[in-house]
Amino acid sequence: MVSPLVQDVSFTVGAGETVVILGRSGSGKTTTLKLINRLLEPTAGDVLIAGERTAAVEPTRLRRRIGYVIQEVGLFPHFTVAENVGLVPRLEGWLAERIAARVRDLLGLVGLDPDTFVARYPHQLSGGQRQRVGVARALAADPPLLLLDEPFGALDPITRVELQREFRGLEGRLGKGMVFVTHDVREGLLLGTRIGLMHGGRLVFLGTPEEFGKADHPEAVAFMRAADPGPAARG
């Protein structure tokens, strides 16, 4: 028998809430997200959205109601910014004018000037701009649930903090349920209403940021220590 990649993972996300899934590389964070939008199917257990088992929903229909910001790659290289952001509305058969208007609104929301960016291709954007486009795309069809897989990974620390701050502002305004994957504790503490800690494919802790600071699970302690090396390390 092969051992499962993730197991004993159970949590709920309410509207306006951000559950941060924290864990080191390979701990099963991405796998957990993909189990939610059925890019992977669970061998045991259920995923429910608004009380409905996702297994009973047609995968394409399910995914169009779940915003998904993908780790690293993810924008289509042959689509312009406008085409990338407007993708799900287009799949849903919106009229062209409505898509165009929505794209402009969303670019504004994520801090990109529509006139400058609509016609650009992903390779003509900086890493930070690409991440913003990824977030805008996930929001396009106004899904109630958002999955974000290290949306601010691979950025310089300053841009990263800037995006985190803006994102924090968005969280309050949007009122969506979010599952936010990261391996950065500070990011998790800043953005999460609750933190779920994954270790070796299991969810070993789930609680508020304050509770996380006091948790005694060795992995949580290790993460807190990494975030704040303490006076000794500071020398």
Partner: peptide, 21 residues
């Protein structure tokens, strides 16, 4: 494959994935 998976993750059907991506 990452681009293909992105398409599926956005909710493309197999036909849309083929035609659009």
């Amino acid at each position: 494959p990452a681009v293909r998976e992105a398409g599926r993750g956005m909710g493309m059907t197999d036909g849309e994935l083929l035609r659009l991506v």
